[in-house]
Design a protein around this nucleic acid. Structure first.
Lengths: 371, 371
DNA sequence: GCAAAAAGTGAATCGTGAC
DNA sequence: CGTCACGATTCACTTTTTG
């Protein structure tokens, strides 16, 4: 899709609004291939029987709302099939979907995602640092929920801000298990009576990580089970557009108030650590043209094992081998591939320096401009 | 079932043996309602395409065995349906089943368990302390696998040794996420050539916890995908009976040798293994995600000399400098390194507080435990 | 012989853009 | 659509080799 087309598509969308009504009907009214990310926290079909009491006989405020009741697995599966199909239609080809659930429903959602052709990128465990204990001592403390991150198809290329996630995790790549506390305290929305406004409000930290990981600023994020708007609030803060769909008026009202007092962060702090791929490509030949390396100069391989000479056209010539810095490196090492930039070194003041330092010099001169 | 009847049923079983052949046929040859626990680690249907190389160009030894190949989800589902039905028939009414899988197959297994009337007690996450990283930086590190613990029916009363588990976990309820290292070192079985005897050998610590939690001494534990016999070895050590079923002769041989040298443990010794302590690592980004610091908030250096702004990905941006709390601190001070946790301060109520106080707050919440 | 450095490895659905 | 060249990418741990 061209940029112009993309802008036109966005203009047709009810951006940064909460749509009332059934999410399937509302999604079907939106143009196909138009949203970048879907985050869905559907009813869990909890099947709770009877009331649950703590050891001190106080009653646990269970999720027993009408919207969480389904007559059978078949009914739940039909519901899942329908809303996932509607979500699939409006998702851009390189868009992605996140769903969250517990063991009551997540296996059925995961299987249906696969059945519809979505391609699972990861399942992610939200490991709650402060879960509700198991009061009866009959099971393990249910201390996690499961998220599934899936692209629209096997060959799609969904956004993944690898370097930003690595930065969030202080330099080591982010794992599939996330430790995040449940939503409590000031973050938890209350109604006028002081009761929680929604029984399953998700923590903003969870959405923060999802949105930083798999969207870019300006993207459109749709949440078909908007509830009290955690997805919208974090999307707004992080400079993304949201579309919420919610059936219950009370939730819409709470979400509307919440979004009104949510502020977008400055662009400067929204910018995120990027990968090398995003930087402009510098052909090796440019180093020769600019005289940073002379034709005939000798380069030394990593580990000092091999040498090769620079030719005037920016190729290398080693022992019986000619080609690009990458090709010659790969052949000498008998490797399937080789990053010539880090493999080859030149001599300056008696020291060996990777030629990548010269590339960096050129990139710095360009000052972030693309070519 | 009376005790006498139960003893009679056990006498008909091929206890502490490894049966050769297809697990469905072998299970169908056993009497119904006769085993206490089934632990199943079936093929995951990984659907790997090409080769994968590490950044150092070494090749990843992938699981590409014929037994993990299925033509389609439909074929895998049929396989799952059939072996689960056979397992269900031989399980005692108050027996239980554990299955383990990854996102490739676990959603389909979980849905089929529910379809057949099994009742999920918990899904349990095995969090690997040393998983294989994601080499290309395209996804989250796949750092966990999922187990499902299910009873035969909704009203069944499966064994659950709540107090023993609590003791294993230093006095607090065992949670649904377990931190256990992958199987390496001396525990990993090798063939005569020094190659791993089985590509997916599970750690004994995992089976230890499963068996302690959901069986009693003398119980019969059946593993339809026995492999090199981890289930049998831990069952024997813990004074339980096992029945293994395995198709591949090489795996049966390795398991037979292993079981011959496995000894039942003395009753007192049993409590030793598993629990691991470590001060949890808290990445700075977590403070941002959790809203303890807002993106855009200004931090002040030790000695009030410099300021920097927090970015959404948990990096800092100062004057022309971007990077982690440690990197930016070091650059500003012209030092080779810097402990950002004590160097940077945030303002609360007019006072400057080191950000390390926030890290301590998170650690206190986690209680120092990682499992 | 011992300490330090280097090499090896684990259930993995692991690339992108120009032409 | 396919082909081709570029060139980006790893964590925790054990085992082996080197000094």
């Amino acid at each position: 899709m061209t940029k112009a087309k993309s802008r036109a598509a966005q203009a047709d969308l009810p951006l940064n609004q909460i749509l009332a009504g059934d999410c399937i009907a509302q999604m079907n009214a939106l143009p196909e291939n138009s949203v970048d990310l879907i985050f869905a926290d559907p009813p869990y079909n909890l099947q709770l029987k009877g009331e649950l009491h703590r050891p001190d006989n106080s009653k646990v405020d269970a999720v027993d709302d009408a919207w969480d009741q389904f007559d059978s697995f078949a009914a739940y599966d039909a519901f899942t099939r329908d809303w996932l199909a509607a979500a699939r239609r409006i998702l851009k080809p390189n868009g992605a979907i996140w769903v969250i659930g517990s063991y009551h429903n997540v296996f059925r959602m995961g299987a249906e995602l696969q059945n519809q052709g979505f391609w699972i990128m990861n399942d992610v465990v939200w490991r709650k640092s402060n879960p509700m204990p198991n009061f009866r001592g009959k099971r393990f403390t249910n201390a996690h929920e499961t998220l599934i991150w899936a692209s629209k198809s096997e060959n799609a290329k969904p956004t993944f801000n690898y370097e930003a996630l690595k930065a969030l995790n202080e330099g080591v790549q982010m794992r599939s298990d996330w430790v995040i506390p449940i939503c409590t305290g000031g973050e938890r929305l209350k109604d006028d009576m002081g009761n929680k406004a929604h029984p399953t409000q998700k923590p903003e930290a969870l959405l923060h990580r999802v949105i930083i990981a798999t969207t870019n600023p300006g993207d459109v994020i749709l949440d078909p089970f908007f509830g009290t708007g955690t997805t919208g609030a974090v999307a707004k803060m992080l400079g993304r557009n949201y579309i919420g769909i919610e059936r219950e008026e009370a939730y819409r009202e709470a979400a509307t108030k919440r979004l009104a007092r949510t502020r977008k962060l400055d662009a400067e702090v929204l910018e995120v650590t990027t990968s090398k791929r995003a930087e402009p490509r510098v052909p090796f030949g440019q180093l020769v043209e600019r005289g940073m390396l002379r034709p005939g100069e000798e380069l030394v391989s990593q580990g000092n094992r091999y040498t090769a000479k620079v030719r005037a056209d920016g190729t290398l010539i080693g022992k019986d081998i000619k080609g690009s810095i990458h090709q010659v490196g790969a052949q000498l090492e008998g490797a399937p591939s080789c990053n010539g930039w880090t493999y080859w070194h030149y001599k300056r003041d008696g020291k060996l320096v990777p030629i990548d330092a010269l590339r960096q010099q050129i990139r710095d001169e360009m000052g972030g401009r693309i070519n």
